[in-house]
Write a protein that binds this DNA or RNA. Structure first.
Lengths: 224, 224, 224, 224
DNA sequence: GATGAATGAGGATTCATTCAT
DNA sequence: AATGAATGAATCCTCATTCAT
């Protein structure tokens, strides 16, 4: 666009500036996400959420009707995109050995950018909760079933007995989620940041290798 | 009962009867362990602990000076034996491929009987906590280092690059802990009890297979 | 419009169209009246008032400076006409037995159309309040005195001793006010609407009969 | 009891001193009754209740689980005895004209000692409430029906038409309750204490006269 | 004139803790 | 050792009110 054209243009900015309220709600969600990820629902005090945003507690109620709604909104916003990617990837019909690695890469990339999500989920599963998120509930069942099918269809069936499939799926789930959930402590203990781009890349590769190893044709292996 | 008979029956029972106070303290620890395992430190209210024991809240203070001490005692009592077994097993000098499976079996057996412990630990790691248990802190570092050595010493070194060793240890940790931590929700979703003796036995075998697979010599594998 | 015409048309229209703001204020008063009548000052939340009008709370402040003013305005608007009628009727010099019934009819007719007013008044008297309405205060004293005179002047003086006059006035007041104040519950309990035109008419007749009975010459009555 | 006997006696004191907690609960009820009578449920703040008893707010929760329970307890404790007396008196089979006055005397005596009760009831009826007290609800309906029968059975039936009976009952109710409910304001306006023993006695006589007048045989009366 | 957002004050309630019994 | 009672601190939430838009 020439300077002249610019002078004449009164068009709204490309990215229409969001209303102040919406931005505040977003910041509240950010703060709440971090807090709930760290301390869980019971431990995440609204006062702290507000403080992180630079508000007084009652102001939160201008954006969310109560604590539970805020929590639900955090989960919804955080989990939805992960579910979407996973769903898409999991439901894809055509697949090959390479695809498995693609699934890993895609989900790792996504979650690597929102490492709070796995912690939120782990808090939920720990509390045996999920009462707050039928969304999560349904999704888990659906995806778990799908993952099961994937295992079944893969060459893993030569290495694992069918009754081990669920355990294998669970194991992969734990390796995936656990990595992010433990990052905070890990840094605290070892000084290394598992959430750095480099670390996540390594874990992505490792996780891919892991899955590949577990799903590959059985090689000569000492009997059990 | 005749006096004579009485003389012969006053013998202390095989399990030396503990004083009432000690028994109460034990019951409190039991209740607290279950509660903290379920809801974490913030979510576990003393009132609920007391209720499960059939006491009023203030009575707890006859046995533990405050909530934090009770929590610490729960962790100590719960984690110590696990640490001991792990330490013992990890420090054993002589080892072979078979030993790895023995480590798995021993720890699974132990933890299978105290499934609250993994949950407690996961709560702790999630909160980035551990501030309450230097014990846990130190142990983790020590054990992690040892596990690293084990991996290094094993034939796994042909399958994994050295910088993947920590990730491998982490992965095994998550598979191990996650299984128990998720049992509650799993039952809720699938109706199956991961903590039943049979289920734990299956997981033990699966976990052994998993470790064996990951530690075995590299077979012909499609390049990455 | 010519100036001349203007001179002739400045006459207020039959129904002088009020400005929008005034109409809103009126609607706020209506909503507030109903709410305060039902729940009293403390129980009547501005948010609810606004909701009934289809506004957000802050909008109320464009019409009334604060809650107390709104409340005062409700009382003023509601009570003033009643006071006026009563005053007029009470101050009328010439009277007869028939007049008493006329007073009853006039006030009943008026209040029957604004049944919230008695409830507002009862809330006020219950709270020992009236601090909000010196207006009400003064009026009550004045009217009570006047009513007292009326009793004294009537043939009731043959039936009641002078020290009973105040009690008689009070009693009539309670019968009058209570009927409307209890209508809500009555409907809830009996399903009948004391505020229907027919019901009010019956009560008017009854109240007239009651007053007539109490004010009539003493008949042969069993001694006390 | 001789001194000797006294020495040997370990029997609890004649009037078994109530436990401290019970006395506190009673004092809380007293304070709450006064406060709720004055300001209604919404206006009666727990902080004020506690302050009147010399406690901090949370201490109330050692005696009542929440505000609503406290309110219910106040109503229950206050209304129950009145209901009992009324029920007894109303259900008595044998009656005469004199009995009506006896009913009046008995209830006036009772309520005269607990003048908060009518105010509580008026608050309830005003709010169209009663949702908190099915007790009150049921009682009102039962008693109203009974009162209706009494009117019907009395000589009042010559003076009032059957469709006026309910209005007559209502009127008596309002005269009765209103007297106490207005006492606070009355003192404020006139300086006279309607709750003094003397005043209550006068009102008792007046109310008796009133009822007698309304229930007496119709005398020569100017037609309506 | 209407409203989204913010907030001080306060209101019910919970919680860990203390203390006298 | 157990507990009823009391409480400071804190939690979630409501409410009246203000202000910029």
């Amino acid at each position: 666009m020439t300077l002249l054209a610019a002078l004449h243009t009164t068009a709204p900015p490309a990215a229409p500036r969001r209303r102040k309220g919406e931005r505040t709600a977003e910041r509240i969600l950010d703060a709440a996400e971090a807090l709930f990820a760290e301390r869980g629902y019971a431990g995440g005090k609204l006062r702290d959420v507000a403080a992180r945003v630079g508000l007084r507690t009652p102001s939160l109620y201008n954006h969310f009707p109560n604590k539970e709604s805020l929590y639900a909104a955090v989960l919804e916003r955080g989990i939805r995109p992960v579910l979407d990617v996973l769903t898409e990837v999991v439901e894809a019909r055509e697949r090959s050995d390479r695809d498995v690695r693609r699934v890993v890469e895609k989900t790792m990339a996504l979650v690597g950018r929102r490492p709070d999500i796995p912690r939120l989920i782990q808090h939920e599963t720990l509390s045996g909760g999920l009462h707050l998120t039928p969304m999560l509930r349904e999704w888990i069942q659906r995806t778990f079933a799908r993952a099961y099918e994937m295992v079944e269809a893969s060459s893993a069936s030569s290495r694992w007995t069918p009754d081990q499939f669920p355990l294998l799926v669970l194991a992969m789930y734990h390796v995936f989620v656990g990595y992010f959930a433990i990052a905070h402590v890990y840094r605290d203990l070892n000084g290394q940041d598992l959430l750095s781009e480099r670390a996540v890349a390594e874990q992505t590769r490792f996780f891919g290798d892991l899955v590949a190893t577990l799903f590959e044709e059985e090689s000569a292996r000492d009997g059990r």
